[in-house]
């Protein structure tokens, strides 16, 4: 599904503050499976995730998505792939304040110019699936942490992506909400979606639904973590 070949990512190249976040990572992420990128802070998890999700380009190496080389594609094409293929769940909900839950959920679909009634119906359906029907017209500031997280999940799913990317999704959730999140991930898996999660939360990477755990440290894959 996703193939990373000797990927490197260097920040502030050529400056005294230059540092390498990812050092020659080669990785295969299987389709319809849940993969966890595990590692301590600064191990390069988020950087690797952003490269996989077409949010940034590697400094070296190649990335293939469904056998298609995407490393050298112009920004417009990358955005297109990102919009149609990936759904992002961030560490924090990253919802836009001042507008309603429904508008936040519909945001990723705006540039596609889809008919409003269709888009609205789909957003409502997504909200009802995560028990948020009553919150559609609420401003996002009024939501609890768990509700905001679920809204961001509905937003990630609005364009019906085949790959879900979640960056430290349980970092700001209590145990109960973290379990609730994992149930949602299980649902994604059952629907045939590919899920990639970065986490250093045992509740996530020790979960029985996880198919693959990739250990990262200092920007490299640890083959035999202790």
């Amino acid at each position: 599904m996703i193939e990373l070949m000797n990927v490197r990512k260097v920040f502030n190249a050529g400056k005294p503050s230059e540092f390498s976040a990812v050092n020659g990572v080669s990785l295969h992420i299987p389709e319809n499976k849940v993969t966890v990128l595990k590692g301590p802070s600064g191990s390069g998890k988020t950087t690797l995730l952003s490269i996989v999700g077409c949010m940034s380009r590697p400094s070296a190496g190649r990335v293939k998505l469904k056998e298609r080389e995407i490393t050298s594609l112009p920004e417009r094409f990358l955005t297109d792939i990102r919009r149609s293929t990936f759904g992002f769940i961030f560490q924090q909900p990253n919802l836009i304040k001042g507008i309603t839950v429904l508008e936040n959920v519909m945001l990723p679909a705006y540039p596609l110019g889809e008919k409003r009634s269709h888009l609205k119906a789909r957003a409502h359906r997504g909200l009802s699936e995560l028990s948020l029907t009553g919150k559609a017209a609420s401003k996002v500031e009024w939501l609890s942490g768990g509700e905001a997280q679920r809204v961001s999940i509905v937003r990630a799913l609005i364009n019906n992506p085949s790959i879900i990317i979640a960056d430290e999704p349980t970092a700001h959730l209590d145990t109960k909400l973290s379990y609730r999140f994992m149930e949602i991930v299980e649902k994604f898996k059952a629907e045939g979606k590919t899920v990639i999660i970065t986490s250093h939360d045992p509740l996530v990477y020790e979960s029985k639904m996880i198919d693959k755990v990739v250990n990262l440290r200092d920007g490299k894959i640890e083959e035999n973590p202790t």
């Binding site: 949010m55 955005t79 990102r82 919009r83 540039p111």
Partner: peptide, 9 residues
């Protein structure tokens, strides 16, 4: 956020 959720420049 807009760029991350799929808006183009």
């Amino acid at each position: 956020i807009l760029k991350a959720v799929g808006w183009e420049t």
